[in-house]
Design a protein around this nucleic acid. Structure first.
Lengths: 407, 407
DNA sequence: GAGGTAAATTTATCTCCTATATAAAGACCG
DNA sequence: CGGTCTTTATATAGGAGATAAATTTACCTC
């Protein structure tokens, strides 16, 4: 049993979280609304509302005369989730850059800051410094104080266990205790999670996968990586390795875990070298080595047959990748995300056509439209989930200074 | 009570289940023991014990003088989980046979009955008849009445969703509604689950995987199939397909999902055909087509180099299989189960030696020692889990007739 | 029988939810 | 303008369930 929270207080916590989740994004609500949403009695609902107001989560609207529609009976008390009651911080530590988002309790980004960041070969002190600077800058840009931050979550391109420990197979993370680094300066609660897993949360929150409980999100940028949600729960495995795609090296027609951008560029360059007639020659300015994936996508969109052939080949490869994962995992939907996701949308028709060759249970396939910030958006969602789950212990009223509040 | 448990009764249910789980298999316990095990206060513990006694789950021992050791103070009330308070039924519907186990609340098998069963090409009426006969026979052999059965669980070699629905891709299951068939005659509560998933529960309960929360159990008989446990929870995917290994068809050096027995026999026969000198010639009586996997395992154990070569090749293949699954799933342990599991133990040293070639996170590998009944053992565990979880609603005192009780 | 001890039991109290009755705040109507 | 109607809030009482502290019980040892 939980020894921290005595079982007498368990119900209250559960109900308070349920109420908060019902109210977030629901605008102005009344006791009656909440009774319907939670199944609790009016007395309970109102008493929890009063408590949540006291803790700073909700505001009660003074003027109850906004009744635009015809309104009979005693006017209901009107409560509204206070989007600006506190903030959370989401950080994406990528291989080349680091991104931080400050968001309010509604999940609205108040600021977003990106800095270059060499994850490898960077002295420990410098890493700490970058983290420090980016959080400070993000907070300043959002015009909120560090005291308003209730939780921080950090996405890293490494396996992270369910408990938030980074698997230290890679030498890099051994000397880089992000949790301690971020938390100790401000006393923030820090959640660590794998980047693909955060992307999965992001897609389910604001992407193509809303309402989907069995989901795979593939990061298709530099390297392929997958976040897997089963029955609404992120999978981790023993050391956080759930979703690792290294086995693709032994899959026919795939051969490695390199991503879409890599192969589009590579095979485009190969096409150039073969000397066929194509727009790509002009696009890269005669220097095949400078041909990028974007150029190939552009040429294909422009009708260039050679570029289209490259994309077709990449789509066939991705069908094998998605097919193999989907066979084992049986998701309802697979979302392609990461840097080239928008362009990758062009690959989907071919992928979906090829998919039945590789799995009996072909999922829907979509391209993410969350763009580059997908991991940090997921980080925000994870932080918000944590805060909502602990609403009675970790609340705006406990903060030294209030964040911004509704007028 | 009310049909939907109001939140006030939530805590009691949770605590009662926790108490029951703490007591099962723990022998004679006192209030103080339970306080330590659950963290609840004495008053609560005793009141729940009284309720569980009233519901028929526990017995209170009269004679408190069994104190073999020196005993100071007021004698503790002694409660004991009543193993014989009720029974559960576990059924394994395989391709060729059907197995039923009747077990008491301690999980001890009271009877086990196996019947041949052609899963395919069998008229619906006959299937129902076999199910009917095997349950009747199992109950009779166990000397318990049908009324003592609190839950039934059934394992099938097909995808089963988290809700217990069978994915009806295979024509067979469309006309075979096992749930209805089993439940309607006696009003039993029936749980349906995939066979590999049940094997996973079995291994964690009584096999090699006790205490392991991230686990893969592979059924390696006719075809390869996997049950996957992540953080103590079975995975299902959207339609129950989580753990399907069809993608192995595209994995280098694997090629299909045929099991160990198949390849040991096949490659043994190929060796015979090549004409090399080996014991296998005598073992199969000169008829290569009648060579079985068991014969090859036996010959290898006897030192036959050709047979050992076959096993070596199969082990290399299995290393690829386990390596690919383990990369994606990151389990702590992989257990080989199914018909040839005992023999397959011989393959493990080679598998473990090869594994690092295919995954950065090689799990431990073990062979199951639960034998043929692994699925039905898992079915028992699933049924027991269900009953323990609903102990306040579904209890021995609700049964028309009591099962056997402790003397 | 006295003293010690560990456990059960009793009693009071606390939390949290629910049900019911009552009060309130308007809208509508004559 | 007062009366009725509707809807909601609030007050009151009560029950389930947990806990803590005081008390009692049963047994041991001396």
């Amino acid at each position: 049993m939980t020894q921290t929270a005595p079982s007498t207080q368990l119900v209250r916590r559960v109900n308070a979280s349920a109420m908060l989740k019902a109210m977030r994004g629901a605008g102005i609500v009344t006791g009656t609304d909440l009774m319907a949403a939670t199944g609790l009695s009016r007395a309970t609902v109102i008493s929890i509302c009063d408590e949540l107001v006291r803790l700073g989560w909700l505001r009660e609207l003074e003027n109850q005369r906004i009744a635009e529609e015809y309104l009979k009976g005693r006017p209901a008390r009107r409560f509204v989730f206070d989007d600006g009651a506190a903030t959370v911080l989401g950080i994406d530590i990528g291989a080349n850059k680091i991104t931080a988002i400050v968001a309010d309790m509604a999940g609205k980004a108040l600021s977003r800051v990106t800095m270059p960041f060499r994850a490898y070969n960077l002295p420990a002190a410098e890493r700490a410094d970058v983290l420090d600077r980016i959080t400070a800058e993000a907070l300043e840009k959002a015009a909120v104080s560090a005291d308003s931050v209730l939780a921080v979550s950090v996405g890293v391109a490494a396996p992270v266990s369910r408990e938030g420990d980074v698997l230290t197979v890679q030498e890099f993370w051994k000397s880089f205790d992000v949790r301690r680094l971020v938390s100790e300066r401000h006393g923030w609660h820090v959640l660590l999670e794998n980047d693909a897993n955060l992307a999965t949360l992001a897609e389910r929150w604001r992407g193509m996968a809303q309402g989907v409980d069995n989901l795979v999100v593939m990061l298709t940028g530099d390297r392929l990586g997958a976040g897997i949600l089963e029955s609404g729960r992120l999978l981790h495995g023993q050391l956080g390795g759930f979703g690792e795609l290294g086995y693709l090296g032994n899959v026919e027609g795939v051969g490695d875990t390199l991503g879409i951008a890599h192969y589009v560029a590579l095979w485009g360059q190969e096409a150039l070298a073969s000397g066929v007639k194509t727009q790509l020659h002009e696009l890269c300015g005669g220097a095949p080595a400078s041909l990028t994936a974007e150029m190939v996508f552009a040429a294909a969109g422009d009708g260039d047959h050679v570029a289209q052939g490259v994309l077709n080949r990449v789509a066939h490869r991705m069908a094998r990748v998605i097919g193999s994962v989907s066979t084992l995992v049986n998701p309802e939907l697979v979302v392609l995300a990461g840097g080239v996701a928008a362009s990758a949308r062009a690959l989907i028709p071919v992928i979906e056509q090829e998919l039945p060759k590789y799995t009996f249970t072909p999922p829907r396939v979509e391209a993410s439209s969350l763009g580059d910030g997908i991991v940090s958006i997921g980080a925000i969602r994870l932080a918000l989930d944590y805060v909502e789950e602990h609403a009675l212990d970790l609340h705006p009223a406990s903060l030294p200074k209030p964040a911004r509040s509704l007028s």
